[in-house]
């Protein structure tokens, strides 16, 4: 499977509140609440770090989960958010596409 790079869309509004990351699409007002693992992926989505590296260095390091399972979950999460235009996904690094980190 080719490497995937992910970046947060600029057409979103996001906020970390009470330990929960809330994300809303500015295009269709879809609202998501991200769990802990999804929040880590979201925060690491800088367009430059491959998804597999995020899984290996962030998810597997911080949570008690095996790599294969974490990768499957991450792919699913990325697919869902990308369908709503909330995450941008590419097989190449997404340079200059990532908005600044949201407020906490």
């Amino acid at each position: 499977m080719p490497e995937r790079y992910i970046a947060r869309s600029t057409a979103i509004a996001a906020r970390l509140l009470g330990g929960e990351m809330m994300v809303m699409s500015a295009l269709d007002s879809t609202f998501f609440t991200l769990n802990e693992i999804a929040t880590v992926i979201w925060q690491a989505a800088d367009g430059r770090t491959p998804l597999s590296e995020i899984v290996a260095n962030k998810i597997c390091e911080e949570f008690d989960v095996d790599r294969e399972r974490a990768q499957r979950g991450a792919e699913q999460f990325v697919d869902e958010l990308s369908q709503h235009g909330i995450l941008l996904v590419s097989n190449q690094p997404l340079l200059n596409s990532c908005p600044p980190q949201e407020n906490s």
Binding site: R15, L17, M24, A26, S29, N103
Partner: peptide
Amino acid sequence: FAEDPELVQLVFQSACEFAS
């Protein structure tokens, strides 16, 4: 009015501030 992305972002941030 969701047609304007900037407005959506403003309202979202306002709602978060309000809830805090």
